[in-house]
Amino acid sequence: MACKREDRFRRNTIAFWLSDEEKSQVEAKIILSGVSKGEYYRKAVLGQEVTVIAGNYMSIRVAKVLEQILVHLQNGNTEEEGLLLELVKQLLEVNKNAPAGNKGIHE
């Protein structure tokens, strides 16, 4: 059972509205960041840097995201089309900004 609000370290809730496109962009960044939604939002709101670092850990994250995309595509889940598109964009951006030794496979 969750603890009482007054027993929490963080007791305050902040809510805001996003467009579908903005929500997809934020969710894609959260998935690739590897941090919880709460941590991601706190860092973003407080102006702290949230980075996605390329390397072995990032390769594992990318593989998991690609698996999620594949499952959604195989299931014909078009409701999350915006999120899937944004994830692919973010993956390409991560690859583009990766150090030279960590760049992906090129045809």
Rank of each mutant, 00 (worst) to 15 (best):
Met58Lys: 03
Glu67Gly: 01
Leu73Lys: 11
Ile53Glu: 10
Lys43Val: 00
Gly55Ser: 05
Glu39Tyr: 08
Leu46Pro: 12
Asn75Lys: 14
Thr78Gln: 11
Thr78Ser: 12
Thr78Gly: 03
Val71Tyr: 13
Ala54Arg: 08
Glu80Gln: 11
Ser33Asn: 11
Gln68Trp: 12
Thr78Ile: 14
Asn56Thr: 12
Tyr40Phe: 14
Lys43Arg: 15
Ala44Arg: 10
Ser36Phe: 07
Tyr57Lys: 03
Ser36Lys: 06
Glu80Pro: 01
Gly38Arg: 15
Val62His: 01
Lys37Cys: 09
Gly34Asn: 07
Glu67Ala: 08
Gln48Ile: 01
Lys43Cys: 01
Val35Glu: 13
Val45Phe: 15
Gly38Tyr: 02
Lys64Asp: 14
Asn77Trp: 03
Tyr41His: 08
Leu73His: 14
Asn75Gly: 08
Val65Asn: 01
Arg61Asn: 05
Val52Asn: 10
Glu49Lys: 07
Glu79Ser: 09
Ile69Cys: 06
Asn56Val: 14
Arg61Ala: 05
Glu67Trp: 04
Ser33Gln: 11
Arg42Thr: 00
Ala54Lys: 09
Val50Ser: 15
Val71Gln: 08
Asn56Asp: 14
Lys43Met: 03
Arg61Phe: 13
Val45Pro: 12
Val50Pro: 14
Ser36Val: 06
Ile69Lys: 00
Tyr41Asp: 02
Glu39Arg: 11
Lys64Arg: 11
Ser59Trp: 15
Gly47Val: 07
Gln68Thr: 09
Asn75Leu: 07
Lys64Pro: 05
Gly47Asn: 13
Ile60Trp: 02
Ser33Met: 04
Val45Leu: 13
Asn77Cys: 03
Ala54Thr: 10
Ile53His: 05
Ile60Phe: 06
Glu80Gly: 02
Tyr41Lys: 07
Ser33Leu: 04
Leu70Thr: 08
Val52Arg: 11
Glu49Phe: 01
Met58His: 09
Lys43Gly: 02
Val71Thr: 06
Tyr57Thr: 06
Leu46Ala: 06
Lys43Leu: 00
Lys64Glu: 15
Val50Leu: 02
Leu70Gly: 01
Ile53Gln: 13
Val62Phe: 04
Val52Pro: 06
Gly55Lys: 08
Gln74Trp: 13
Leu46Thr: 09
Arg61Cys: 13
Arg42His: 10
Gly76Thr: 09
Ile53Leu: 09
Glu79Thr: 11
Lys64Leu: 12
Met58Cys: 08
Lys64Trp: 03
Gly47Arg: 08
Asn75Val: 04
Gln48Val: 00
Ile69Glu: 00
Glu67Pro: 00
Asn77Val: 09
Ser59Tyr: 15
Glu39Ile: 05
Leu66Asn: 03
Tyr41Ser: 03
Gly34Phe: 04
Gly38Val: 01
Tyr41Leu: 01
Ser59His: 15
Val52Ser: 09
Tyr40Trp: 14
Ala54Ile: 14
Lys43Ser: 05
Glu79Ala: 03
Lys43Phe: 00
Val71Ile: 15
Arg42Ile: 00
Thr78Asp: 09
Arg42Trp: 11
